[in-house]
């Protein structure tokens, strides 16, 4: 469920990036790399788990599924927080600089 949630986040962020490409003023590209990197790592994790559990891997207990979904959503939120921090630090539109160092008339 965590893998699935992250893959959906990666796909949606890639679609948003593609829609605005080649412009990337909001640095959506970074969000794509974060989610795809995490998706690949969880894919490997899932393969290892599948080797261990075999068919039982596809029939998780409802409690485990809910917990994994909760974790997946938290992971997506953390990815967005990381992206937001990078966006505000790099400030590609110069908004922070303008609002902090605005000259008074």
């Amino acid at each position: 469920m965590t893998l699935l949630t992250t893959v959906f986040a990666a796909i949606i962020s890639t679609i948003i990036w593609y829609k605005n490409a080649p412009e990337d003023e909001m640095k959506i590209g970074i969000l794509c790399w974060i989610y795809w990197g995490a998706s690949l790592m969880w894919l490997v994790d899932a393969i290892f788990e599948y080797v261990e559990l075999q068919a039982a891997f596809f029939t998780p207990a409802p409690y485990d599924m809910l917990n994994d979904l909760y974790l997946g959503l938290s992971v997506v939120a953390l990815g967005m927080v990381i992206w937001l921090v990078i966006l505000l630090i790099q400030d590609p539109k110069g908004v922070i600089k303008k609002s902090l160092f605005q000259k008074k008339d």
Partner: peptide
């Protein structure tokens, strides 16, 4: 830099899972 972004991003989210 694309590779670094994937590795850093993925590791950060995976580290969060380990904390979880």
């Amino acid at each position: 830099n694309w590779l670094s972004n994937m590795l850093w991003g993925g590791s950060a989210l995976l580290a969060f899972e380990h904390i979880w």
